[in-house]
Design a protein around this nucleic acid. Sequence first.
DNA 1: ATGAAAGCGCTAACAT
DNA 2: ATGTTAGCGCTTTCAT
Lengths: 366, 366
Amino acid sequence: MGRPLRMRRQATLASLAAELGVSRTTVSNAYNRPDQLSPELRRRVLETARRLGYPGPDPVARSLRTRKAGAVGLLLTENLSYAFRDPAAIGVLEGLALACEDAGVGLHLVPASPGRDDVAAVHRAGVDGFVVYSVPDDDPHLAAVLARPVPTVIIDQPQIEGIDRVGPDDAAAITKLAEHLVGLGHRQVGVLCMRLGRDRNDDFVSLERQRAAHFHVQRNRLEALATAFTKAGVDWATVPVVERFDHTVDEGAFGARQLLSTYPQVTAVICTSDILALGALAEAERRGLRVPADLTVTGFDGIAEAERIGLTTVHQPVLEKGRAAGKLLLSAADHINPQVITLPTDLRLGTTSAPPRTMEEHWFGP
Amino acid sequence: MGRPLRMRRQATLASLAAELGVSRTTVSNAYNRPDQLSPELRRRVLETARRLGYPGPDPVARSLRTRKAGAVGLLLTENLSYAFRDPAAIGVLEGLALACEDAGVGLHLVPASPGRDDVAAVHRAGVDGFVVYSVPDDDPHLAAVLARPVPTVIIDQPQIEGIDRVGPDDAAAITKLAEHLVGLGHRQVGVLCMRLGRDRNDDFVSLERQRAAHFHVQRNRLEALATAFTKAGVDWATVPVVERFDHTVDEGAFGARQLLSTYPQVTAVICTSDILALGALAEAERRGLRVPADLTVTGFDGIAEAERIGLTTVHQPVLEKGRAAGKLLLSAADHINPQVITLPTDLRLGTTSAPPRTMEEHWFGP
DNA sequence: ATGAAAGCGCTAACAT
DNA sequence: ATGTTAGCGCTTTCAT
């Protein structure tokens, strides 16, 4: 630490009181309720505190007594590195941090390694509530959070009966995107989605796995896509869906490669995130496919880079999502009847979507 | 919260013990030392706990008793939004979070609004130590941190006698950059730097203000630049230095505009961060100046975008910086004799630096 | 393998 | 304006 002084943890509120010949209440008041004692006495207390090296009331003891930790916990099981590399996740984090700052409470990042199911960290966190961000419904950390007697707000997923939730209407949002593609004439589409469960499956996804996905956001989006394309006369069972465990641009590219190698007739690759879409675009380029002339690619989230390159995507207000979750948790809201806050989304048509090649030829010649 | 059950905070370790007709020790052991009691009894304890809705030992009470909070505090006074928008800061945060995760301790972001000097949040934080990231030497939050009887590690700035610190050798790093520019022939340079104090001064900087800068990193970099250019025969007093309070690309552009409007003869703009340099590049384009033919621009940090566009800059390992700080804080290291960890830096020559126009003409004709 | 005793350091009624 | 009384809920020697 540096100054040797700070090491010897000695002076307590009680010892200070003794030294001064006053009661502990008075010393406590000197710190917490300056108006409860004469300025003169307060000055003496603080002065003596300095002399004795008393650092002020111990925060943990105070928390025990007041039953208030002054912090909210944040649980995000996803490997931290991905969280800090995904602009959408960073936006959520920022919004949440802002809400906490506004309220003057700390934001406690719970160490939840995805590998080892070390739930102890959840038990150890001295917080007044939790925000859970985008975890699978069978996450043991989540179970531990819900077992604690504090309010909890979930962002995005999972959707749990009776628990506050903040997120977009994924189904409605992606339905608009699907209708856009259907309108353009796409019937042979492929999907590239994020992980559907805690088990790694970097491969095509069966209908059964789609239906039973533990990540509700992905499940809802796939379901909505299925509904929309079925309505357009497409047999969803024939639509290839590729899953990627790691959420990176590179994995997006690999996923697209897998998809396009096996199904070269696909005219549009629908990605459930912009990050994956960025990878799909890279793969398209690698294969010499022009976008959107030869291939349509779409994303989801509306991150800055997507906007910059003109990706057709669904934009969602990530910062607001984090902020709304923080506010909801910290609000006096009786968390008795659970709230669900639905955020607006916005279909952003970019330059990566166009009619499929065959249609184009049909209209304009080869 | 949802389940009404979780609201009634009732069952405690003591009440559980009473219900079971065993001692509190036994219940405690059931949770913390499974090997200290018969499996059968333990099963009964846990089972009864579930029945009574006892959520397990209260983390705050446990912390008070064990004198361990299981978390480290992070103080970064800079407006949160800037922290989450600067890739360099995000890298530090990620590294620190990783170190915490490895150690199984939480990372507690202390709410420290730059405006109001609300130091209370520092007092309230139940943490075992603090990491302070890049604050001015007169920051009241920092003072509050140092007053607490826990170890502290500072990243980058300020440099305080007797306190552990992790950071690059800013002076050495930027000296190499300066020598590169001098070698190219630049003698008429201008500097664009980040804020030098807590007061806003979006303007040219006097020598006095440079010298007295409260942000040590900026001070050190300016000082090193002064030394290097003086050695090359430049009178540092004639070198324009523009300061920017907000650390954004836009402000970088404004700063460059201010600089180039008043000193159009400048052949190189040295920016003390990549973000500012990105802005300077935008401004150069706006003015129709070709880079590097008409103007040289350099940065500092080595963020991904800088690398992508080929900015000449100094790269520093930001993730490692954060991780090293976390490890140092959490290590058994007797923080009695303070440590200073210096990280390596790396001059990355890009395509934004070249000999000044006049020299080029001298050599190759106009 | 289990229990009894002794606080950890503080705040909040409720007096005076 | 200041003091008295009572814990907050838990862990940890030290016994048994």
